[in-house]
Computed example of a mutant assay.
Amino acid sequence: MIHILVADDDIHIRELLRHVLQHEGYAVFEAADGNEASSVLSREQIHLAVIDVMMPGKDGLQLCSEIRQDYGFPVILLTAKDQLPDKEKGYTAGTDDYVTKPFEPQELVFRIKALLRRYQMVNSQVIKLNDTVIDAKNYMVHCGDHMFMLPMKEFELLTQLASFPDRTFTREELIQLIWGADFEGDDRTVDVHIKRLRERFADMTEDFSIRTVRGVGYKLEAVKK
């Protein structure tokens, strides 16, 4: 299920968007200000954020910059300001889209779906990293002229990282996502599987790399060509 963060200090906007987005089948996480939104991001896996610009404490532009720096999912900014300089600030902060209030909820839904398609998150069965293709439906990896299958946990780990390029996952998050909450081992399991993935692809492709984020976890970076 796609998880959407709605950050707005207007409770009526949050209630409206919760109703509309849940009707579309999305899970909705709410925050009344930027600081609360940061707290949600630290504990939940979010796939897209709808953020009001004018919020108390940490405002929407600051939150957008934080998301762009630390995560890899799309952002839509909501604002009552529709002047070009205001939009410039939003795009400079890293937003993917910009919606002015008042807005039609269904139009926002259209924009959300378009962004999710662009980020290959909705019903994504094929993930492309330049010439490397991960076929999630058939559990296959195509790497240039080579096609092969990985052990299941390695495949699931690679797919999870590749679905969110440039997003850092903690070891604890990866344990929860790949091995489940009832896993009785420790997070060194993640390190072992990451090492195996690196070894498998080291001499095969330069399309992507799995980076260690010291003291935190791992992220996958696709090489720009």
Score class of each variant (00 low, 15 high):
residue 120 Q to A: 09
residue 178 I to S: 00
residue 129 L to N: 07
residue 174 L to D: 01
residue 180 G to L: 04
residue 57 G to N: 05
residue 68 R to S: 11
residue 71 Y to I: 04
residue 130 N to L: 09
residue 139 Y to S: 15
residue 216 V to N: 09
residue 118 R to I: 11
residue 100 T to A: 08
residue 109 V to F: 14
residue 102 P to N: 06
residue 4 I to E: 00
residue 39 S to T: 14
residue 149 M to L: 07
residue 54 M to N: 09
residue 159 T to I: 10
residue 94 G to A: 14
residue 78 L to V: 14
residue 89 K to E: 10
residue 76 I to P: 01
residue 80 A to Q: 04
residue 139 Y to F: 12
residue 141 V to E: 05
residue 107 E to F: 15
residue 135 D to S: 12
residue 19 H to C: 09
residue 170 T to P: 01
residue 70 D to S: 13
residue 53 V to R: 01
residue 46 I to A: 01
residue 68 R to Q: 12
residue 20 V to A: 10
residue 169 F to I: 11
residue 57 G to R: 06
residue 225 K to Y: 10
residue 72 G to T: 08
residue 19 H to T: 13
residue 33 D to K: 05
residue 176 Q to W: 03
residue 217 G to P: 00
residue 37 A to H: 07
residue 154 E to H: 13
residue 7 A to I: 04
residue 198 R to E: 05
residue 52 D to F: 13
residue 202 A to S: 11
residue 9 D to V: 03
residue 3 H to I: 00
residue 93 A to P: 12
residue 25 G to M: 08
residue 123 N to W: 02
residue 194 I to Q: 04
residue 25 G to D: 02
residue 85 P to E: 12
residue 13 I to Q: 00
residue 136 A to G: 04
residue 106 Q to V: 10
residue 117 R to C: 06
residue 135 D to N: 15
residue 217 G to S: 05
residue 186 D to L: 01
residue 205 T to F: 08
residue 185 G to E: 08
residue 98 Y to H: 09
residue 13 I to C: 08
residue 141 V to S: 02
residue 149 M to A: 13
residue 9 D to R: 04
residue 219 K to H: 05
residue 175 I to A: 00
residue 144 G to M: 02
residue 30 E to S: 12
residue 115 L to Q: 11
residue 150 L to Y: 03
residue 98 Y to K: 13
residue 154 E to K: 11
residue 97 D to F: 12
residue 63 L to P: 02
residue 36 E to W: 01
residue 191 D to V: 15
residue 75 V to K: 00
residue 134 I to P: 03
residue 134 I to M: 06
residue 105 P to L: 03
residue 79 T to R: 06
residue 147 M to I: 14
residue 210 I to L: 06
residue 7 A to D: 04
residue 108 L to E: 04
residue 73 F to M: 05
residue 9 D to L: 02
residue 194 I to F: 05
residue 95 T to W: 04
residue 70 D to F: 14
residue 208 F to K: 05
residue 119 Y to K: 05
residue 95 T to S: 14
residue 125 Q to K: 13
residue 204 M to G: 07
residue 67 I to T: 08
residue 185 G to D: 07
residue 58 K to M: 11
residue 16 L to N: 00
residue 176 Q to H: 11
residue 26 Y to K: 06
residue 68 R to C: 06
residue 212 T to K: 15
residue 155 F to I: 13
residue 185 G to T: 02
residue 151 P to V: 10
residue 194 I to M: 10
residue 126 V to T: 15
residue 130 N to F: 07
residue 206 E to D: 13
residue 165 P to T: 12
residue 188 R to C: 04
residue 179 W to A: 08
residue 201 F to M: 07
residue 214 R to H: 10
residue 17 L to Y: 01
residue 124 S to T: 15
residue 100 T to C: 15
residue 63 L to C: 00
residue 137 K to N: 03
residue 140 M to W: 01
residue 105 P to G: 10
residue 121 M to P: 02
residue 39 S to Q: 14
residue 78 L to T: 11
residue 123 N to C: 03
residue 62 Q to L: 10
residue 194 I to E: 02
residue 189 T to S: 14
residue 125 Q to Y: 10
residue 22 Q to F: 07
residue 168 T to S: 01
residue 112 I to L: 13
residue 178 I to D: 02
residue 4 I to F: 07
residue 60 G to Y: 06
residue 12 H to T: 15
residue 214 R to E: 04
residue 29 F to G: 10
residue 188 R to I: 11
residue 65 S to N: 07
residue 84 L to N: 11
residue 62 Q to F: 00
residue 51 I to Y: 02
residue 2 I to S: 01
